[in-house]
Amino acid sequence: MEGNIWISGVIYGLSMGSIFFLLAVGLSLCFGLMRIISLDQLLYYSLGAYIAYTVETAIHQPWLSVLSGALAAGIASLVVERWVFYRIYARELTFTMITSFGILIGGVGAIKYVWGLIPRPASIPVDIQVSILGTPVPVYRLIIVAIAAGVYVAIQIVLNRTVIGKAIRAAVEDVDQVEGLGVDVYRLFTLTFVGAGMLSGLAGALHAPLVMVDPQMGLEVVPFVFMVVIIGGLGSIKGTLVSAFLVGQVVSLGSLIYAPLAQMAPFVAMLMVLLVKPTGLYGSPLLRR
């Protein structure tokens, strides 16, 4: 019995970590490449969840609805990028942070206007359970972990094997140099931003069945996502992966030990990491401002 709780705790932590990873990797990429802090990723997360929920209730196609959630988030991020971020890439970090916070708040207001204030339950696409070492584990959570792992591999392949990915990596090191080579860096920026928005939307659409869909859901995960990015080191994909699963486990296993710990422990961990190593676990000292 005791062991069962721990196994399901670990699985729960893994799926939370996957969601955190999908959300944080966009933020981290945006920071690494464009030097912006894009809080509005959390808006695409809620939007993805809401679109997935709406499509699901309309046509009862779970995976199609997840896909449409991610696509809608991508379109929304494209619009925001064109209208707002395109004008402010050159500004300092805190400026983009506050502007994107304005977008986040405005978007939450718009969501409240369209879908109302009441939290909605979204249905789970796969509600089978498999037994791992005698513990029933929902398959859906395992699928989320698999998707996150797939996304990680895909990002690594794109960044390491394609021309665009190599240009992005080079631009993380030195934007001016890459621009000097004749690469249209603003196209790279748009591409990265929309990619990040789609990943956030995917995270929202996948997370929707596990939590209730409600307008505040984006604001609720802000602290956790930030924490993941900070612990991992801004701009590092690998660091984001490690810290996302770390935070997922701390939240999940912490709550098994002592319930209030679930929300607090990750912040204590972040405080420790920041005070000891201000660049995060994998943050390169080059990226320090």
């Binding site: 402010i88 304005g102 977008i103 708040i105 405005g106 978007g107 939450v108 207001g109 718009a110 409240k112």
Partner: peptide, 14 residues
Amino acid sequence: NWEFFVGLLLVTVM
């Protein structure tokens, strides 16, 4: 929903 207008105002100000 005041959030929408506050957000809009904030982005405009920025």
